[in-house]
């Protein structure tokens, strides 16, 4: 499948949701988050660091994820992000919102 061309195609709020979803699996550093999103979307969604890091910092500033320095799989210090309780709540409500929205869009696109 052809990847969506630019990370900016990902609407900001959607990227937030993807990050929250990804971090929800386990604590992860920024690079891993980008990799994981790419893998899970079957290479369709490529998140460049240009969008990724500002998003991470904003989410942390909002108190939805928190960060911690830890040793990474390649034995280097990396900043790991974890989902907070507030972040989980936010993620759930945002996911529900997304489901509703995408269902609505498929209804229209499907019938056309």
């Amino acid at each position: 499948m052809k990847p969506l061309s630019k990370p900016t195609d990902l609407v900001q709020g959607t990227l937030d949701l993807l990050i929250l979803k990804t971090v929800a699996l386990e604590p992860m550093h920024g690079w891993a988050v980008a990799q994981r999103i790419r893998q899970m979307s079957g290479d369709v969604l490529q998140v460049g660091q240009g969008a990724l890091y500002p998003s991470l910092h904003k989410l942390e500033q909002n108190g939805w994820i928190e960060s911690e320095w830890a040793v990474s799989e390649n034995n280097r210090r990396a900043k790991y992000y974890t989902l907070t309780k507030a972040g989980r709540k936010a993620m759930e409500s945002e996911a529900a919102q997304w489901e509703r929205l995408s269902a609505a869009i498929s209804l229209i696109v499907g019938t056309a």
Partner: peptide, 17 residues
């Protein structure tokens, strides 16, 4: 709203946040 900011969460989590 597509891409709107994440909604605020309410309840007890709020104060912690």
């Amino acid at each position: 709203v597509v891409g709107g900011n994440l909604p605020d969460c309410r309840d007890g989590v709020m104060s912690m946040r």
